[in-house]
Design a protein around this nucleic acid. Structure first.
Ligand code: ZN
Ligand code: ZN
Ligand code: ZN
Ligand code: ZN
Lengths: 160, 160
DNA sequence: TATGAAATGTTATTATATAACATGACAGGA
DNA sequence: TCCTGTCATGTTATATAATAACATTTCATA
């Protein structure tokens, strides 16, 4: 698995957008929170809390060496819709449409770790129809699909 | 939250069906595995591995007091499609249609813990269409919806 | 610059899951 | 019946994920 995105332009743009959103909302994107967001954006794969913690430790920043530090930052980023949590793997990944709250559907490659976030409204509607039919009040929708991405499929086909 | 199903008839029927399925497949539904399945069926709410372990300990059976015991039994039951794992809560719940493998969609009440398993084929088809469009090969589909069930909604409405 | 609220630091603990190896149960063949 | 290999379970230790509780620092603003 690649461990770094090829371009940091996306990351910089995302950080700028996050800064803007937080200002508009009157919440503080502190150094720590920005750094955690940057770490997640800088990885091609979704990261677990302790993997993020390792990077913070490499930073050599004062403190930042204990789990609560990273979990609190992650909680903030989740609240602000800047990242998503993938419950099937206990990892965190970036959101490409912060600003408009959504649940999303995630295609997760078990070979290369790549995560593809979809936002298919049809699926949302269908799930809503299903819950409405049961009189169920939805708070959170989780749709995660595990398997192999097209790239890894081609890769393995070449080696046959 | 209620901790026991009102009827044990469902449980007995489920155990019988499990026995039959395992015989057909040439796998062994041992005492331990059957007991774990019974424990899950006997609860109105989905149970975590350690909650199941607590019950096994109450049984006073020799051994059965360590995590691997229950995780191995759970792995077997999952493989045989006799139970489902809810990743959003790290808990296990019964399956009402063992025998035909499926992913299912789960409505999970965060107030009373009740789990409602749906098997809406439209949703399956829509998700399949989406992944096919991306050239993604699906191995596991996770659909879990967290919120409040109709019963708990009515309950809370009465107290307003 | 005083003050309170929010954020972070710090230590300890809880919760969930697996690794590794020993022992026991059981089916099929000698 | 006894051997033998496989599967299942017992057992100890550890890995991994998340939170509780309290101390200290930062920061806006009064
Ligand atoms: Zn998103
Ligand atoms: Zn891949
Ligand atoms: Zn099912
Ligand atoms: Zn309920």
């Amino acid at each position: 698995m690649n461990s770094c995105r090829t371009s940091t332009a996306d990351t910089q743009q995302a950080l700028t957008q996050a800064e803007t959103l937080c200002q508009q909302r009157g919440v503080r994107l502190t150094d720590l929170r920005r750094r955690v967001l940057e770490i997640i954006w800088s990885s091609t794969t979704a990261l677990g809390a302790y993997a993020i913690l390792d990077v913070l430790r490499e930073d050599g920043r004062q403190g930042a060496s204990a789990p609560p530090t990273v979990y609190r930052a992650l909680d903030f980023l989740l609240e602000q819709g800047l990242i998503h949590r993938l419950v099937s793997l206990n990892v965190f990944t970036v959101c490409h449409q912060p600003g408009n709250p959504h649940n999303g559907q995630f295609l997760i490659c078990q070979d290369c770790g790549h995560v593809n976030e979809m936002n298919n409204l049809e699926i949302d509607h269908l799930l809503r129809a299903e819950t409405d039919g049961c009189g169920f009040e939805t708070r959170t929708r989780i749709v995660e699909i595990l398997g192999r991405c097209s790239k890894c499929l081609e890769e393995s086909a070449r080696h046959d």
